[in-house]
Design a binder for these strands. Structure first.
Lengths: 299, 299
DNA sequence: ATTCATTCGTGCATATTCCGCATGAGCATA
DNA sequence: TATGCTCATGCGGAATATGCACGAATGAAT
């Protein structure tokens, strides 16, 4: 059965004529005749009594008309009700990011986001665990990576530089740290990610690469713990700029090799916004993407 | 949009899998995939978020599901509600017959019909005027005719013989009426139908036809009036057996030429039950047809 | 880390359905 | 009685739906 059959049936019932209904809908009368006949077969009911030149609803037809007219209205309302959740920034936005990125970069912005979109509820899943985006019904994910592969749409939020930092207190009581290879004489604070624990790679302005093996007896997670440890003077640490630039600006930490690019895995990494598809993108996702880009690019 | 799409959507939403839904419905998974994609385009909404191996309703999808599930139930109920009017003898049956046939042959039976079908309401339109069966929403018509043509289904209810009758009182004070041609000496009571007013045709047992020109200064309608006039001794009248047999049996009228078949138009006429179609015949029409055949054939 | 099995998406060909045209039968009106 | 219009139906072409085959992706098992 086709919904179009039902709306046609209602139309014919009110016009009292196949031919008039056909004219109004720019159809051939034969199509109207067949469609009504098909509907009668599908229902197992005679809906209209008709001869040439005359047409009248049967009793069953009147009952069926009474039954489906509200239903057709409800179908439209169901579509509008579903649309309401995506056409304006309302409902619930489920957002995921790594624990530290979420905590330091996203959470501080949510007060203003709430001001701007009072009807939108945000559920932030900030974890370093692997998150199943489909099963968790995630609307928007933030991933820290050189690049994003897979079927999801990815738009870069920001580029990330990593810095080797230590506190002034630590530096005042430790062997000199002038060039990267000096790190071998220090016990570093390490992030609990395998790729971050063996060696750090330095690239100078000329593009020369230096790979420095590092050691450390303190391996922490999440990245914020490593930051706190560095601030406490426990040792040098490799941390992203979005995490430590404020401490550096305030003199709480020092960027030990500012003229180098440093990476534990790959250079040219960054934070990416990831969402399932540009097609049928709910407004709530759109506004969060725009908001984050606006806020994070301003800093 | 197709209702099948909607039921498929509900199915997928509950099974959480295109492939599982396809198996259950004996479809190819590609058809399920396309159907859901078509529904999403028609609605302008993403209903499911999916990758390979994972499928979850979106918020809009959940809302739409909540909206249409009751609607699908209502559609079934609308069909059942419409069917209820035809699947059992209830509702209103609109019946038409000629004024006299309705009054004398149908009305006396309606008390028993009501006993038998208490939930069925009968509207009898007994008139000698031409009745538009479609416009008047007639379920069942009774027509007196040699045969029925046209698109309607016709089943014969009874055969009709016409009789020339007069009252004993009239005969006692009038010229002898021995053979049909004797009628030319009498002023007859005529039915106000053109075909009944010029000549009556007599057919004897051997098949010999005699056409007798008749005259009368009293032309009445409906046929019951002619009967009453004959009973009052005003003159001979040509009337159908179902109208006068009781008077004959009681001696109130005499059949003047019982060994002849008489007709004003054609012989071998009868009463026919006429209804629009055997297909999708409502129960109420069926039971009335069966009832009339049972009752009228018993008398 | 690799392999395997399964899911969802899509191109292509085929089957099915829908639609308009033409025509006929029937009916109401002039 | 003739005419014009409605509804029904055969037929052919256009549009849509479906299955098959295949590929990409993913989760589970090894």
């Amino acid at each position: 059965m086709n919904l179009e059959w039902l709306t046609l049936f209602v139309d014919v019932a009110y016009r009292g004529s196949f031919a008039a209904t056909a004219r109004e809908r720019n159809l051939d009368p034969s199509s109207v005749s067949r469609t009504i006949a098909d509907l009668e077969v599908a229902l197992g009911l005679r809906l209209f009594q008709r001869t040439t030149r005359k047409l009248a609803l049967t009793e069953a037809g009147e009952r069926y008309l009474a039954g489906i007219e509200p239903i057709l209205d409800e179908l439209n309302r169901a579509q509008e009700y579903a649309h309401a959740s995506v056409d304006s920034p309302r409902g619930t936005l489920r957002l995921t990011a790594s624990a530290t990125f979420g905590l330091r970069c996203i959470v501080p912005l949510l007060a203003e986001f709430r001001e701007r979109y009072p009807e939108l509820r945000v559920e932030g899943l900030f974890t370093d665990d692997n998150v199943d985006l489909v099963a968790e019904r995630i609307d928007l994910a933030i991933r820290l990576s050189p690049q994003i592969e897979g079927n999801y749409v990815a738009t870069q939020l920001m580029k990330t530089r990593y810095r080797v930092v230590a506190s002034p207190d630590y530096l005042g009581r430790s062997p000199a740290l002038v060039k990267p290879s000096d790190l071998t004489a220090h016990r570093c604070v390490l992030l609990a990610v395998r790729a971050y624990q063996r060696r750090w790679v330095f690239r100078d302005n000329m593009g020369n690469m230096t790979e420095v093996p590092i050691e450390g007896d303190l391996v922490l997670s999440p990245a914020a713990s490593v930051q706190v440890a560095a601030l406490a003077g426990i040792g040098p640490a490799l941390l992203p700029d979005w995490l430590v630039d404020e401490d550096i600006a305030a003199g709480r930490l020092l960027d030990l090799f500012p003229s180098y690019s440093v990476a534990a895995t790959m250079f040219d990494t960054g934070a990416w916004l990831i969402y399932p598809s540009r097609e049928f993108l709910p407004k709530k996702v759109r506004v969060m993407i725009d908001f984050l880009k606006e806020k994070i690019r301003r800093t």
